[in-house]
């Protein structure tokens, strides 16, 4: 989608000016976790994790991997970090919502992006799992010098896991400060604006 005004720069490059191949390379450096996860339920867990490497794989290798999973050690290591190594060959649709959330995170782990965009990554999780998921996401991008951008509704999660908070109301930035200096009064004012 071209911007209606101005330019968009992603990791220092303008996607509109890139060839299809370079644009794919660029997308591969950006990892996303969606609210609805967007995993393929019919596939085994390991294939959904390996989908994170489709940018590097040729079509033939991607096809063969569906028969004999390729890059198994990396995929299993990623699944182990989210505690699902024993479910690697299960059909993804048989997993619970929280487990599928962790499969989506494992996919990001093998993708190794420089920037992670997360749209309500904790929405399907209970408070303990939400904390763990955000810890993992938080480690992911900064390990390679990048950043995690997450849309969150729970101010508690923001306080525990983020460095900087940006509040949006009706498409405009109404709050932007380091989390360390965020006060209850700021939050009360922010939520007063939105509701």
């Amino acid at each position: 989608m071209p911007p209606s005004a101005g330019t968009v720069r992603v990791l220092g490059a303008d996607p509109a000016g890139l060839s299809a191949r370079d644009r794919r390379r660029l997308w591969a450096r950006v990892g996303t976790v969606h609210q609805s996860l967007e995993l393929v339920g019919r596939l085994r867990v390991v294939h959904n994790v390996n989908a994170g490497r489709l940018a590097d794989w040729s079509g033939a290798r991607a096809a063969w991997s569906l028969v004999r999973p390729q890059g198994l050690p990396e995929a299993l290591a990623a699944l182990d970090r989210v505690g699902l190594a024993d479910r690697a060959f299960e059909r993804t649709e048989r997993l619970s919502g929280g487990q599928r959330q962790r499969v989506a995170i494992a996919r990001l782990l093998v993708q190794q992006p420089d920037l992670v965009l997360a749209d309500e990554p904790a929405s399907a999780l209970d408070p303990v799992l939400a904390d763990r998921a955000l810890t993992l996401l938080g480690e992911l991008a900064p390990a390679r010098g990048g950043a995690l951008v997450a849309a969150l509704h729970d101010p508690g999660l923001v306080r525990r896991h983020c460095d900087r908070v940006v509040g949006l109301a009706e498409g405009r930035v109404v709050l932007d400060r380091p989390v360390a200096t965020l006060s209850d009064a700021d939050l009360a004012e922010f939520y007063g604006v939105t509701t």
Binding site: W27, R29, V30, T32, L54, A55, W57, A62, R107
Partner: peptide, 8 residues
Amino acid sequence: ALGARPAG
């Protein structure tokens, strides 16, 4: 969005 080729 994560950079997969059309075939993939």
